[in-house]
Every structure is written in C-alpha cells, then in structure tokens.
Amino acid sequence: MQNSHSGVNQLGGVFVNGRPLPDSTRQKIVELAHSGARPCDISRILQVSNGCVSKILGRYYETGSIRPRAIGGSKPRVATPEVVSKIAQYKRECPSIFAWEIRDRLLSEGVCTNDNIPSVSSINRVLRNLASEKQQMGADGMYDKLRMLNGQTGSWGTRPGWYPGTSVPGQPTQDGCQQQEGGGENTNSISSNGEDSDEAQMRLQLKRKLQRNRTSFTQEQIEALEKEFERTHYPDVFARERLAAKIDLPEARIQVWFSNRRAKWRREEKLRNQRRQASNTPSHIPISSSFSTSVYQPIPQPTTPVSSFTSGSMLGRTDTALTNTYSALPPMPSFTMANNLPMQPPVPSQTSSYSCMLPTSPSVNGRSYDTYTPPHMQTHMNSQPMGTSGTTSTGLISPGVSVPVQVPGSEPDMSQYWPRLQ
C-alpha cells in the first residue's frame, strides 16, 4: 500500500499530492522566468500547473527564495509595531506611495530583511487598517496617535501638521516623493554593498519588468496595427511575429492590442446598429396606417339613396333571421326581375335548405315592403301603392349592394327569390 497518492495534472505532468515540487523543477521555473518566458509558457514547457508556477515565482520575487514554506503551523507575524509605524510614516510623507514602493524602502533602510519582509498584500492590509482606524477615531485622537508614531512633539492640530517642515499644504506631496526618490538612490547604494547585491538587483529588475506600465504606442505603430486590423481581426502567430519585427513591439503586446481592438470594434458596431435601427424607425405612426385595407374592405359607393341603408337594423327591421341572411350572402350585381318571367313554384328541397333563413311567422307573405323604405322617402312611396304591378321595390342582398326588384302586385311571395340566388 502506497503512503502517498501520485497523479497526472491537466498538462500531463506527474505530481505527488500534498508534497511540494522538487527543487530542480523550481530552479528551472526561475531560470525560464529570467530568460523572459511568460508564466503560461513555463507552465506548458515544464508541465506544471499555472497556479503552481505563479505561486513559486511570486514567492521568489518577494523573498528571493525558491524553497517551499513549512507545511503546517502558523507563519510568524511580520507586521510588527515597528514595521507598522514605518509604513504609516512613509504614507504620511508621500500619500500616493504604492505598497511595493513601501516594501522596497523597508528593505533599503534595513527595517526588514528578506526573511521577515511583509508581502505587498500585508502592507496593503496595514494601510487599510490605518485608514479604518482613522475613520473610527476622532480628529484629536487621530492626531495624537500619528504624533506618537512619528515621534515628534510638534502641533498636529492642523492639517499642514501632517507634513512636517512644510508650510504650503500643496507642497508636502512633492517633497515626500522627492525624499522617497532619494531613498531609492540609497536603495541602490545599500544593496550594492550587501553580499547578495547582484541577486537582489536582478530580482528587482525582473520584478519591475513584470510590473509594467501601460504600453505607449507611437503613431507609426498605431498606423501599422490599424492597417493589419483592417486586413483581418484575428491575425495568426506568423502575422503577429512579422508585425512585431516590423514595428519593434513584443508579440504578446500585439496580441493584447488586437484583443482590445476587437472589443472596441464590437462596441462601435453595436452603436452603429442602434443608430441604423433608430433612423429606419419613423418618429410617429401615421393615422391612416393604423387601418389596414386588408382588414377593412372598402364599401362601394351607393348608386341610389335607398342603398345607403345596408342592414335591417338601420331600417328599423327587427327580424334577425333576414338580417343574418342578407349579411351572409355574397355580393351580387344589380339585376331586375321582369313581370314576364315565369313564376316557378319553389322546389321543396330548395325551400327546406333555406328554411332556417325565413321567419317562422306566416304573415311574411302579407307584409308590405314599406318597412324598408327610409324616412325621407315615405311620402313618395305612399303616393304609389304597392298593389300595382309596376311598383318597384329595392331588396338588399349584402352591405353596400342594392338590387332593384320588380315585385308582382298580386302576391309578394318571398319564396320566388331563392331559386334565382343559387
């Protein structure tokens, strides 16, 4: 039975679970980093996980050691009161100082060594604690504590007292930064006198190289990059290397530039699409467009005044059976039934097929058609009795279509119309 579990990581490298990497692998990681390889490249070359490479390099940059820390136990506290007071002093002298600059000053002034120097995250935590204590304490208590930490007896009751030896409130920041720059020169002199001055200088240079600022491109470089971006948004590694040799930039910087440029292009394309949609959409909808001609068919113009009344309900007709019959029939052209047409008796099958359309009241044959006459024609229609054979009435077949029909004066039988409509 094995005491430890061995495995293979996602890159194909072998590791022992819970145990640190061998010293030979750690040394190779540092050597590759000094030669300029990126952590992701080191991870692929040595088949070590990216997190492990970053952790080893980060500890090497901070402490200069590649040895693993002790497994188990607690780390001794490195942010001692003396170190905290120095950090507060540096922050007062130059409020814009960075944590890694404070760390360098602690090393250069001999406050800490490589073994007990606090990390950048520890210094940031100390600065946050100082800021929170400043908010919790009152103004007087804060000034007393700062005077105690600074070891001075001057008056701290006013704002300019934060910067000793100065009279203009805006000047101390520059003086403090100048003092810090002077301390940086002392850093070089002190570290050069040490035993491991060369190694420390190499480590600091490598650290500065990794902690780079934003790349500033010249106009020629920007023009070359934009020209390549117009050709393709995704250049391959050969195109990037050719462009890197042409404009004297690292291939990694060119790759990052193209990634950022593609993101910018997507944002601009989104804005262009929004403007295009806004320009195509009308600002207001016309009133006429809300009524579609496919839904509402136009009603033909009436030929006679009587045809303006298109349904039985508008003429005072309360018989719903006839109203439904007229509205359900398709529109037909106007025609006239003459008196000489043969009077065919209704076929029983045809009569039964339209039995649902006729009223059940037996008085329908005896009703006159003056009910369908509009009010303004009552006088004219009353002067001509319906009993004469020459009287013409208008029957409504569908809305908007008038059918003048000659009705025999002897017997106005409704059943004569249905064979004609089939």
Rank of each mutant, 00 (worst) to 15 (best):
R147Y: 10
A70L: 07
N116P: 06
R105H: 09
S6E: 10
S4G: 12
S6Y: 15
N3W: 08
R59K: 05
G72T: 06
D104A: 13
S4R: 14
R44S: 06
I102D: 05
L146C: 10
S35L: 14
E62V: 12
P22M: 05
I123Y: 00
N114T: 13
C112P: 05
R128C: 00
I71M: 13
W100A: 07
P76K: 10
H5R: 15
C52F: 02
Q47H: 04
E109V: 09
S96D: 14
I42K: 02
P22I: 07
E31K: 07
T113I: 11
V126Y: 05
L127Q: 08
Q2A: 11
F98T: 05
P22T: 04
L127H: 15
S54C: 08
F15I: 04
R69G: 06
Y61T: 05
M148R: 14
Y143F: 12
E82T: 14
R67A: 15
V53E: 00
V78T: 00
G73E: 01
S121V: 03
I45Y: 11
D23A: 11
L130I: 10
R26P: 02
T113S: 13
N50L: 06
G141I: 14
A139E: 12
M148D: 15
I97K: 15
R19V: 05
G141K: 10
A37K: 15
I66H: 07
R44I: 04
L46D: 02
G7H: 14
V48L: 05
Y61N: 15
V8L: 07
G64Y: 05
E101W: 06
S96G: 08
D104F: 15
Y61K: 15
R125V: 00
N3F: 11
V53I: 09
L32V: 01
R147G: 12
R59Y: 06
G18I: 01
F98D: 00
K86Q: 08
L32H: 06
E133T: 11
P95R: 15
E109P: 05
L130G: 08
K134V: 11
R19F: 03
S4M: 12
L146E: 12
N3G: 12
C40L: 06
S6A: 12
F15K: 03
C52G: 06
G64W: 01
I66T: 08
S96T: 14
L146W: 14
V84A: 05
R26C: 01
E109W: 08
P81A: 08
L149S: 15
M142C: 13
Y90A: 09
R19W: 05
G51W: 00
S121N: 00
C94K: 10
Y60W: 07
L11A: 06
P81W: 06
V126E: 02
N50G: 07
V14P: 08
N114P: 12
S65I: 06
V30L: 05
S121L: 03
R67K: 13
R26D: 02
S24Y: 10
L32S: 02
V8K: 07
Y61P: 03
T80S: 05
P76H: 02
L146N: 10
D144M: 10
N17Y: 15
G138T: 14
R26E: 01
C94Y: 11
E101M: 15
S24G: 10
Q135V: 09
S121F: 02
I66F: 13
C94H: 13
A70E: 06
G110T: 15
I71S: 15
N114Y: 10
G64E: 03
R77C: 01
F15H: 04
E101H: 07
A70Y: 06
Q10F: 04
E31Y: 10
C40I: 11
G141Q: 13
S74F: 01
E133Q: 15
M148G: 12
N116F: 09
I29T: 03
Q27W: 13
I123K: 02
P76W: 02
E31H: 06
G64L: 04
G73L: 03
V126P: 05
L146Y: 14
S24D: 08
P118R: 00
N150E: 09
S122R: 02
I42A: 01
V84R: 09
H5E: 08
K28E: 07
V84N: 06
Y60L: 03
Q136V: 10
V84S: 06
G64T: 00
V111W: 08
M148V: 13
R77A: 00
I56L: 08
C94G: 12
G7W: 09
N129I: 08
A99G: 15
P68W: 03
A99C: 06
W100Q: 07
D23F: 06
N50I: 07
A33P: 01
V16R: 15
L107P: 07
G141Y: 10
S108K: 13
V120F: 03
I42Q: 02
Q10W: 03
R38D: 01
D41Q: 14
C112N: 07
E31M: 10
H34R: 11
Y61L: 08
G138H: 13
C112S: 09
D144N: 10
L57S: 05
P20L: 01
Q89K: 12
R147P: 15
C52D: 01
G72R: 06
A99Y: 03
K91A: 04
I66P: 04
E133W: 08
G7I: 07
M142T: 10
K28M: 10
V84Y: 05
A88S: 10
G7P: 07
W100N: 07
R59H: 10
R77T: 07
S43Y: 01
R128L: 02
N50Q: 12
G12W: 00
V48F: 01
P118Q: 00
N129F: 04
H5N: 12
L106V: 03
K75Q: 05
K86R: 14
R125K: 04
R26T: 01
G72P: 05
T25H: 06
C52M: 00
S6L: 15
F98G: 05
S54Q: 03
P68M: 02
L32M: 12
S119P: 02
R26L: 01
I102E: 04
K134N: 08
V78A: 04
F98Q: 04
R59P: 02
G12A: 01
E101R: 13
P76F: 03
E62Q: 14
Q135C: 09
A37W: 11
L11W: 06
G7N: 13
Q89D: 08
I29F: 02
E133C: 12
S43N: 01
H34C: 10
L21V: 02
G138C: 08
R92I: 09
R38W: 03
G138I: 14
Q10G: 05
A139Q: 15
A70S: 11
V83N: 08
G18S: 01
C112F: 04
S85E: 09
P22Y: 01
I66V: 09
H5C: 13
P95E: 10
S43K: 02
K91W: 02
S122I: 04
R69P: 01
P81I: 07
G36P: 02
P39V: 15
K134P: 10
S85I: 08
Q27A: 14
I117C: 14
Q47R: 15
V78M: 03
L149D: 15
I56R: 00
V111M: 10
A33L: 06
M148F: 10
R103L: 05
D144V: 09
P20M: 02
L127D: 06
E82H: 13
G12I: 03
I97N: 14
S65C: 14
M148C: 10
S74D: 01
N3P: 13
R67D: 07
L146T: 15
P95I: 10
G18H: 00
G141A: 11
R77P: 00
D104C: 10
S121C: 04
L106K: 00
S43F: 01
C112V: 13
L21P: 01
K134L: 09
R105D: 06
R103G: 06
V111E: 06
I97A: 14
K55N: 03
E62R: 15
I97S: 14
